[in-house]
Amino acid sequence: MLTYVANRLLATIPVMGMVAVIVFAILRLTPGDPAAIIAGDAATAEQLEQIRRHMGLDKPIYIQFVLWLGQLLRGDLGVSLISGVPVAGMIADRIGPSLALATSTIVFTVIIALPLGVIAAWQQGTLLDRVVMAFSVFGFSVPIFVTGYLLIFFFSIGLGWFPVQGYKPLAAGFWPFYQRLILPTLALSTIYVALIARITRTSILEVMGEDYIRTARAKGVKESAVLIQHALRNAAVPIATIIGIGMAMLISGVVVTESVFNLPGLGRLVVEAVLARDYPVIQGLILLFSFIYILINLAVDILYTVFDPRIRY
């Protein structure tokens, strides 16, 4: 197992190398000019050219790539072209809210979605099953910003229970920290609860017809134990995969939720950097996201062995 993990981690190096080349190339092929963002609307072409020269953007692309790669090998993600702030620092500032929201959403989702999916499968075809599936369709269909605004309207403006927006670090105290995460978690969970409840239901229904379930029932095992110990465990592999993918997506791409609740996370940073063509920031973020995806995939692969001892690496 340890050899497998070590090999997988080693494999991240060429993968990230390829990601680096592709991201660098795509960004340089995209129209846009960070010098224009810096200089503002009234700058002339001549001024832009001078700024470009000072930023090194007039150098041939391959030289720019070699310089960036050199920095990267020294563990330096570079400095934002726009604000002059180190990219690593910007990411460190923004990863806290993203991580907090992703964790909170996944925990909440698992707590709600797994029982819902199990119950829906157990009660297949009944009113309860239909209610759960109707909720799923609803969760998928309503855009997050609508759910977000409605939650703000009722719970912040109406009842005054939670702040409208913002983020406080954990050091400010657990309640100030979590108070600001509750509404975004609820808004974001609607989609993930819907998704995971459906996947859980389908996966359990698939295993419910298996011989070992019939055997368990024939042995007189209680229905709850059949569902949880036998059916859910055997259905866990696809569920774990979806949860893993969800976690990675939550860290990297929840721009709308971050905007509606003003959470200064990585999703917003990506959008801001892309709109400003802040190349070092975009490159640093894409590399980070690739690394997170690789780690989460690895973690999910390892979890498979926990749920299904037949899987060996």
């Binding site: 993990v5 981690l9 460190a92 500032d93 990863i95 954990l170 050091a171 780690l295």
Partner: peptide, 22 residues
């Protein structure tokens, strides 16, 4: 899994905790 994966993951974990606690 981050804890025992690699030095890079440790560095990442350090950044994350700093970010959460800042």
């Amino acid at each position: 899994s981050l804890k025992w994966s690699s030095g890079r993951a440790l560095a990442l974990a350090a950044i994350l905790s700093a970010a959460l606690l800042c």
